[in-house]
Amino acid sequence: MSIAWYLSVSAIIFCIGAVGVLMRPNPLVILLCLELMLNGANLALIAFSRMWGNGDGQIFAIVVMTVAACEVCIGLGMIVAIHRRRLPIDVDELRELQG
């Protein structure tokens, strides 16, 4: 398969994730959709890494996975803290910082 097929799949995953981030009101699902976008970027990185036969893209993908794990840790901690304070778990309702 040519590299272009993999890049197309990665673009499709990224855009599906973007739709989820823009549409869903639940912050848990927004985090899941952020994972989708990061995975699309990872697939593109690894496809380019394969294209040039160079391992730098794979290292980059591993670092992206680590950053995603950190982001999940912080994001889920925030969701648990919101749940403890009996606030609604809904980004349309949590608008105190909106000015």
Binding site: I3, A11, C15, R50, M51
Partner: peptide
């Protein structure tokens, strides 16, 4: 994105890699 990826005309994108 699809225009940028598939319409780029790069030779390497069409190949199956190194």
């Amino acid at each position: 994105l699809l225009i940028a990826l598939l319409g780029s005309g790069l030779k390497a994108v069409e190949g199956s890699g190194a």
